[in-house]
């Protein structure tokens, strides 16, 4: 296979499929991460104490719980997209690639769900307010 761009060389290889969407979503979540993860780091560093009461009480406030949940969605979506690229670059066997991508999807959605549930639990049921 040459490296030219003549149409004959790319014909029959299939369409670019969801590539553009993937690329754009990676960048939208990148901006979300930049804002929200910086916010989390600043918020954590500024907490006067990091005992359970302080952390749980902080996370339970709506003004913290909502951006936190947004951050979780943005981060795990970005992770799902980002590690997918890594896998596609280095895992060449179709069967193994499929299996690893399934594993990655379970990780991103599963861990994201645990995080969202934890914040929701603190916000609705826990933490002194």
């Amino acid at each position: 296979m040459g490296s030219g761009t003549k149409v004959g060389k790319v014909r029959g290889l299939g369409s670019a499929k969801s590539g553009v969407h993937h690329w754009v979503a990676q960048r939208f979540t990148a901006i979300g991460n930049a804002l929200l993860v910086s916010w989390l780091i600043a918020g954590l560093v500024m907490l006067p104490s990091h005992d359970h009461g302080a952390v749980a009480g902080w996370l339970a406030q709506p003004i913290v719980a909502v951006p936190m949940m947004l951050m979780i969605v943005s981060v795990f979506y970005h992770i799902r997209l980002g590690l997918q690229v890594l896998i596609e670059d280095y895992v060449h066997d179709d069967g193994l690639k499929f299996a690893v991508l399934v594993l990655l999807t379970f990780y991103a959605i599963g861990a994201g769900a645990v995080c969202l549930f934890s914040v929701a639990k603190l916000a609705f049921a826990g933490g002194p307010l």
Binding site: D51, H52, G53, V55, A56, L59, I72, V75, F76, I79, G82, L83, L86, Y107, A108, A111, V114, C115, F117, S118, V119, K121, L122, G126
Partner: peptide, 26 residues
């Protein structure tokens, strides 16, 4: 990016789950 995705992602999950599990687990 990959380090944050794996180590950071698991760490974040552990932290939030511990906080939601109560004072003893935290």
């Amino acid at each position: 990016g990959d380090g944050l995705a794996i180590v950071g992602g698991l760490g974040l999950t552990w932290w939030l789950f511990a906080a939601a599990s109560g004072p003893a687990d935290y």
